[in-house]
Amino acid sequence: MDIEAARFIGAGLAVIALGGAGAGLGVLFGNYLNAAVRNPAAAEKWFGRMMMTFALVEATGLFAFVVAMIILFV
């Protein structure tokens, strides 16, 4: 197989991990909304915590993106 083609396949495989990050973000926001709808008074208090977790979860997906970038361009 051509090395260039293998590179692209590898990069494509690497970004599969973004699906996990997407699922994680769905769980995070879904649970936040669930909790917020049940107890709107407490929603404000946990918004910051939620945003921080969002950043952490999103970063996990971005690790995959970085791996793909490294495979493609380095």
Binding site: E58, A59, F65, V66
Partner: peptide, 12 residues
């Protein structure tokens, strides 16, 4: 993790 999180977010 600390450095790649920031770096990857900005690059992406």
């Amino acid at each position: 993790t600390l450095s790649i999180r920031l770096f990857a977010n900005m690059v992406a």
